[in-house]
């Protein structure tokens, strides 16, 4: 049984005068300890799927199951201990007036977990930040350091699943490399399951075992990592996406 199962998911936003269907009948399954990638252009609905899993987008059809259980309508504390999300923009996803210490200890307080101090220090060390960073504010950190804090925050409750929404697209190439290395190390150490969104095929190829290509809210094609490098895609859209990334090929 897959850890994340999404069946026939649709998400519909009510915009002025009309409804916008952001996700149309998408199904996917991610096994435990697998890393699954969603790619597609802006507005293809890839981030909306992650948000729908967390209850941040209005689901209009289909089901989402985590370890066989349908997610409850109000996600609740049990859900947040299993599933956590890292957002794209580290400048927007950390509270600007909370110290790093407060950001990291809040989930512990909500869930009534003990040893706050030790856990916060360990979380910072795990993502490669000095413990003294606890007493800083987000504006005193660089973009890469903030994204490390965002990853540390997502891991505070020791979830099995990390939803990664373009976790490195706001970062410099060198910092992106460090952050991707960090995510891969954490996944290996903790046996995490990743569902990752990116528009960069090279990042997805580096991080993911299987890939779902999306366009206009619908699933276009699912392919294993090996098929990507060999350009063995069946649909024209996936091929055009690949062609636009030709400069990201090994040896290019």
């Amino acid at each position: 049984m897959a850890l994340i199962e999404i069946d026939d998911l649709s998400v519909t936003f009510a915009a002025r005068h009309r409804e916008v269907q952001a996700v149309r009948n998408v199904s996917l399954a991610v096994d435990a300890r697998e890393s699954f990638g969603l790619v597609g252009e802006s507005g293809s609905g890839k981030s909306t799927i992650l948000r729908a899993i967390c209850g941040l987008a209005p689901i209009s059809g289909g089901t989402i199951r985590i370890a066989g259980q349908p997610v409850p309508t109000r996600r609740g504390p049990g859900f947040s201990r299993r599933v956590q999300m890292v957002f794209q923009d580290p400048y927007a996803s950390l509270h600007p007036r909370h110290t790093i210490d407060r950001t990291l200890s809040e989930p512990l307080a909500i869930h009534g977990l003990p040893d706050t101090d030790a856990r916060v220090v360990r979380a910072l060390t795990d993502v490669g930040l000095p413990p003294a960073f606890r007493f800083r504010f987000p504006h005193q950190l660089s973009g890469g350091q903030r994204q490390r804090v965002a990853i540390a925050r997502a891991l505070m409750l020791e979830p099995e699943i990390l939803l990664l929404d373009e976790p490195t697209s706001a970062l410099d190439a060198s910092v992106q490399a460090e952050t991707l290395n960090l995510l891969n190390r954490l996944r290996a150490e903790r046996g995490l399951t990743f569902l990752m969104v990116s528009h960069d095929l090279a990042v997805i190829d580096h991080m993911c075992d299987r890939i779902l290509v999306m366009q206009h809210g619908a699933a276009v094609e699912e392919l294993p990592r090996e098929a990507l490098a060999k350009a063995q895609m069946k649909t024209d859209y996936a091929r055009s996406l690949f062609a636009a990334s030709a400069d990201r090929l090994l040896g290019a």
Binding site: A177, A202, L249
Partner: peptide, 9 residues
């Protein structure tokens, strides 16, 4: 430091 499609893991 850039990842590449088909590059090593």
């Amino acid at each position: 430091c850039l990842p590449r499609i088909g590059g090593p893991r």
